[in-house]
Write a protein that binds this DNA or RNA. Structure first.
Lengths: 166, 166
DNA sequence: CTTAAAAATTTTATGCTTGAAATATATTCG
DNA sequence: CGAATATATTTCAAGCATAAAATTTTTAAG
């Protein structure tokens, strides 16, 4: 969702000195949100019409493409930063579609490793190529020479959540 | 046959630069996404623990707080950029909770206006005050003097989606 | 006036997402 | 060993989100 402009109305009178900075950050957040939602919506639409799939499925496949031997369910949910139960559902459907396989883990019957099938790897490669192109054109309003700087600023925002393993 | 290697070299150099720019944009997108998801997750958590509510509900209330006489359902879904059916469900629950009222529209029995109740306005004001503080602290890694510049860059990304009414 | 087309909203089917509870297996320690 | 605790995953209930179909009402055209 976007357009939280009402938030900028001065509904409370609690702020004094840092009011301007605070409002500026709020406006920045709203723009950040708007830009992200816009790109996300385009990606969803492109994945849907071009590959009959979804962003969550793409994200799972992307994570598993990087780690060829696969990941345990808990590792997957940790990498994607979503709940365990969420991953279970998405993986279930990808397994049904022959894109993923579940492999028992030796010496631990609680755990399962999830891995892309060959078909899954091939499908992902096709999607990833398109995906890069979509991003490239969606972000082409951004000067490449600015990218590093912008990147650093965003790093500051995300920093508190992780130790930045990318 | 003439020697076109200079042209080929030039061409491949251009391709290489484009490829590098493309990868840089992709990395930027991943950071943008990460930063946004992080802030969103914090907001959700704060709304949940502090006010027992959700971000979608907050977004609906914010939109309606801004337009005091209320909005029609279709206007609301358009402002929030979500589907009609989505808004129906969220509004249903907010009405049940006494935060919103549905008001018939004169001369058009298809449409409904949705408006915050007084209780709704008061609840929103309390939440909005906290919200600004949360954003302020979440974004405090960003130098205020950089905010305008960063903002402009983000504007470029979102530009294609709207005519920038925000 | 009557029928066709358009508009506003809701419903439906499906999938994503979460937090919490449940299940099953492993590990630790007295 | 055996009980408590920890870990890995799934299940569950509720809500969010979409696209497509259905419903109701309005508007337009003949």
């Amino acid at each position: 969702m976007s357009d939280n402009s009402a938030l900028l109305a001065d509904a409370s009178n609690t702020v004094a000195l840092d009011a301007a900075a605070s409002k500026a950050r709020l406006r920045l957040w709203l723009k950040l949100l708007k830009a992200t939602k816009h790109v996300e919506a385009e990606l969803r639409e492109n994945l849907r019409t071009g590959f009959d799939t979804t962003l969550p499925r793409f994200d799972v496949m992307a994570a598993l493409y990087r780690i060829e031997p696969g990941l345990k369910m808990s590792e997957l949910s940790s990498v994607l930063r979503v709940s365990n139960g969420n991953v279970t559902g998405i993986v279930d459907r990808l397994v049904d579609d022959g894109i993923l396989v579940r492999i028992p883990v030796d010496n631990d019957r609680r755990a399962t490793t999830v891995r892309l099938t060959q078909a899954g790897r091939e499908q992902f490669e096709a999607m990833a190529a398109s995906h890069e192109g979509w991003i490239d054109s969606l972000l082409d309003g951004i000067d490449v020479s600015e990218v590093q700087h912008l990147s650093d600023q965003l790093e500051c925002i995300a920093r508190k959540s992780t130790k930045g393993e990318d």
